[in-house]
C-alpha cells in the first residue's frame, strides 16, 4: 500500500486506509475538503496530507532548460565543478592519488593505526581549506568536531605557520597583492577560522551532526567538516549493535546530504580494530561492515617499511593506489626519500 510509505503520522495513515485511500493516485484526485470530510479531520490537516502525497508521487516538471529533473545536474557541470573543489593535503603524491585532493561534496573516511597521523591530516586539511583563491585554494573555513580530545591547538598553530611559510616561498604574487594576502594570512587568523566543537558523548555527536545544517547555513563559507573520530563514543558506550548501526547510518546520510547541499567536504577519521579472517588477525577499520558503505571514499593510512603510506581502499572515481607521505614539523608533506613512486595496485 503506497500510503503506508508516506511520512505522516500513524493515526492519519490508519484513517486514510480505513477511508479507502490506499494508492497515491486516489489521493491525487481528492480535494482537501473531500479528504477532510472522509477522514474526519480539519481541512488544514487534509491539505498537509495532500501536499506530502503529491511530493511523494511527483515526477517533477522540467525546470526551464536548466535541468530535466529538479535537483539534478548534468555530468559536464559536475565535471567543471569537480575541478575547482579540491582541498590539497600538502603532499603532492597523496593529492595525485586522490585526484587533486580531498573532494568537496563527498564524504571521505580516513583510518589508520594509532600514531600514523590521522589527526595530523585532519588539522592539515582544516588549515589548507583556507588557502586563498590566488594560491589555488578554496578560501573557506573549517569545522573541526573533536570527539577524542586529541586536537592540540599548539600543533594547529605549527601547521598553520608551516602552511603560510610554504605559500610565501612557492608563489610569485605581485607585491601589491602580497601585502593584502600577508595581512589575511597570519597563522593566528587561520586558527580563528577553525570552528571547534568538543563532543563528549554519542548523544552530543548526533546532536552536532543534526545542528551542522543550521550552523553551516549561517556560516556559508565553511568548506570542510572534520570529525575526529567518528568511532570513539560509538565504540565504548553502545551495547545494542543493531541500534548503533541504524544511528550511524542516520549520521552518514545526514553528512552526505550536508556535503552535497552546501558543497563542502566531509572528512571522517576512523580507528582500526583487529579482525580474525583467513586464519590470522588482520587490521581493519572499526565500526563494522555496514558502516563501510557509509562513506564515498575510504583512505587507509599504514606503515610500509619505514614510511607512511596512504592507500585508496574504496572510491567510485579513483583507481586503488598507494602513495607515501610524511609528517614533518610543518605538517603533512611529501615523503622525503622519494618524490615519484606512486604504485598502482
Amino acid at each position: 500500500m503506497e500510503v503506508m510509505r508516506l511520512p505522516i503520522s500513524v493515526s492519519q495513515r490508519k484513517k486514510l486506509v480505513s477511508a479507502g485511500y490506499t494508492s497515491l493516485s486516489a489521493l491525487s484526485s481528492a480535494s482537501p475538503s473531500d479528504l477532510a470530510r472522509d477522514l474526519e479531520i480539519s481541512e488544514v490537516a487534509a491539505h498537509e496530507i495532500l501536499k506530502v502525497a503529491s511530493h511523494g508521487s511527483r515526477l517533477d516538471k522540467s525546470d526551464g532548460n536548466k535541468a530535466i529533473l529538479t535537483g539534478a545536474q548534468n555530468a559536464w557541470d559536475m565535471y567543471k565543478e569537480d575541478l575547482h573543489t579540491r582541498i590539497t593535503t600538502s603532499c603532492t603524491d597523496l593529492d595525485n592519488i586522490l585526484g587533486g585532493g580531498i573532494s568537496c561534496k563527498e564524504v571521505t573516511e580516513i583510518g589508520g593505526v594509532p600514531g600514523i597521523g590521522k589527526t595530523q591530516l585532519g588539522i592539515q586539511l582544516a588549515v589548507n581549506v583556507q588557502i586563498p583563491v590566488q594560491y589555488g585554494g578554496l578560501e573557506g573555513k573549517a569545522v573541526y568536531i573533536d570527539t577524542e580530545g586529541s586536537f592540540m591547538v599548539e600543533r594547529a598553530l605549527q601547521i598553520a605557520e608551516g602552511c603560510v611559510e610554504d605559500m610565501m616561498e612557492n608563489n610569485n604574487i605581485r607585491p601589491r597583492d602580497l601585502q593584502v594576502i600577508q595581512d589575511k594570512l597570519q597563522p593566528k587568523s587561520l586558527l580563528a577560522n577553525i570552528f571547534y566543537f568538543r563532543i563528549c558523548s554519542y548523544t552530543e555527536q548526533i546532536g552536532v551532526v543534526n545542528y551542522l545544517e543550521k550552523f553551516v547555513s549561517e556560516h556559508k563559507d565553511v568548506k570542510i567538516v572534520v570529525i575526529d573520530s567518528i568511532t570513539f563514543h560509538f565504540r565504548q558506550d553502545f551495547e545494542d549493535l543493531a541500534l548503533r548501526t541504524r544511528v550511524l547510518g542516520g549520521i552518514a546520510l545526514k553528512l552526505m546530504k550536508l556535503a552535497h547541499n552546501f558543497n563542502l567536504a566531509v572528512v571522517l577519521l576512523n580507528q582500526v580494530t583487529t579482525k580474525y579472517a583467513e586464519g590470522s588477525y588482520q587490521l581493519t577499520l572499526a565500526l563494522g561492515d555496514t558502516w563501510a558503505h557509509a562513506s564515498t571514499n575510504r583512505v587507509i593510512l599504514y606503515w610500509n617499511g619505514n614510511e607512511r603510506y596512504a592507500y585508496i581502499d574504496k572510491s567510485p572515481s579513483l583507481p586503488s593506489a598507494s602513495a607515501p607521505y610524511s609528517v614533518t614539523v610543518k605538517g603533512i608533506r611529501n615523503s622525503a626519500s622519494n618524490c615519484k613512486r606512486i604504485k598502482l595496485m
Binding site: Y196, I199, K214
Partner: peptide, 13 residues
C-alpha cells in the same frame, strides 16, 4: 533538541 544538546562552538584561536 540537537541544537540544545550541541556544545558551544569555539574557534581554535
Amino acid at each position: 533538541i540537537s541544537e540544545m544538546v550541541c556544545p558551544p562552538c569555539e574557534t581554535a584561536l
